[in-house]
Every structure is written in C-alpha cells, then in structure tokens.
Amino acid sequence: MSDQRLFVAALFDPEAPCPAGLTAWNGSDPARRFAVYRNNVVVSLIDALADTFPVTLELVGEEFFRAMAGVFMRAAPPGSVLLAEYGAGFPAFIERFEPARSVPYLADVARLELLRVRAFHAADADPISPARIARALADPERLPALRATCHPSLGVLRSDYAVVSLWAAHQGHGDLAQVDPFVPESALIVRVGLDVQVLALPPGGDTLVASLADGLPLGQAAALALAAREDFDLTAHLALLLRMGALTALVQPTEA
C-alpha cells in the first residue's frame, strides 16, 4: 500500500495505530499528534453533514446525529471536493440505520433538506415572462400539448410522512407538538430569487409538478393529477407555479 493510503486508512479507523514513519522532535508518541488530523477530518466532515441536515439533527439531537453521521462518513467519505454535494447518500443510509428506526420519517426529512441545498446552489434561470405566459395560454385548444421547463432548482418530494409540517415547525412555523408525523405530505422545493421555498403540495399537485418535471405535456400531467384527486384544480396549481417563478418556459412542441 502507498504511504498516503496507509495514512488515510488510519485516519478513518479510530482503532488503527498511527502510520509508521511519523516522528516528533521530542520523541513523544506520534499517535497523539496524528490524532489532530484524525479529529480534523472526522469533525469537519460531520460538521459538513450537520450544515446540510440541520432539522434532521434537531429531530434526533446533536449526540445521536453526530454518531450516525460518523458511521456514514466512515463508510462513505466525500467523493468530490465540492462539500455542497456531500450527503447525497445520507437519506438512504438513515433509512437503513437500525438505531434510527424509531424515527421513521427521519430519512424523508433529510431528503427534503438535501433538495433545499441543491435548490440553493442550482443554476440561475429567468422565470417565464408574463407575455409568454399569456401567449402560451391564449389558445385553450392547444393547452394540452404545452410542455413546461421547470426551474433548475425545482424538486418534488412525496412522503408517507408530514415532512413539510415537521420541517416548517423547526423553522418556527407551527407547533411541533401539534404535528402528526404520520400524515402523508408532498413538498415542492424551488428557489425564488435568492430564497429557497418549501411548500406543501396537495395530492394531485405533486403528481402535476412531478409529471411536468419529467417532461410530460400539460394535458397528460393534468390527467394524471385528476386521476390522483378528483377535485384537482389545474388553474390554481399553474397559477402557483407561475407566481413562484417555478417554470422557465411553456412551449408547444412545434416551437421547441
């Protein structure tokens, strides 16, 4: 093994002896000095996860979170120098993490937080202009064929748990004690200007947005939404998306 590979192996294994060939001017045990590097790496990577998943941390407490993040980090150190991308596998890890079983909604809250960070750093794009909206919606007969382009920051999360209410309660909106975590909720995450917004989407609404994001034409997306919920209100949902700047284009296939 290379010297640096041995160094890395010892960084990530707290039980491992420190690598051979390390010295100190006073002949003191280099393990104590090596521990500074081990601590820097472990603490900074756990801190990076704590920055990305603050509500996940609050739900289980600092001590539990840091222990859980430590297990994840040792199994999956960052594969990129871009720490903003670190933690993509953390929600799936939480789902399988036996000690977190008693908090079944934890993984989905982490998924919501991951989508927020992605939205925060996503590419900039101008929302569709009012003139183009008016033109796109002018001919009702051609509405079903319209295809939308979603803002690069847009994400939809469908959960069996009350992810939006749980997350919002940790932002000071609503009383956590009043939240029933076992009510399914869907979240729309999109950056509006410089701020990432998190909204609850009713059933049907989540189907519409996810279908548009998948590239389905408006008519097909609306039909799927109606199938999910009989009283689905297409006009209200389109108005919401346009008001938030969540769509950057609405075009007929012939215009594309």
Partner: peptide, 11 residues
C-alpha cells in the same frame, strides 16, 4: 484527496 475520496483537511 486519495483514491477519489476527499478529506476536507490539509494533510
């Protein structure tokens, strides 16, 4: 970095 992993420290 080593072997594709990043350690967020200056080693």
């Amino acid at each position: 970095t080593h072997g594709g992993a990043f350690f967020n420290d200056l080693l």
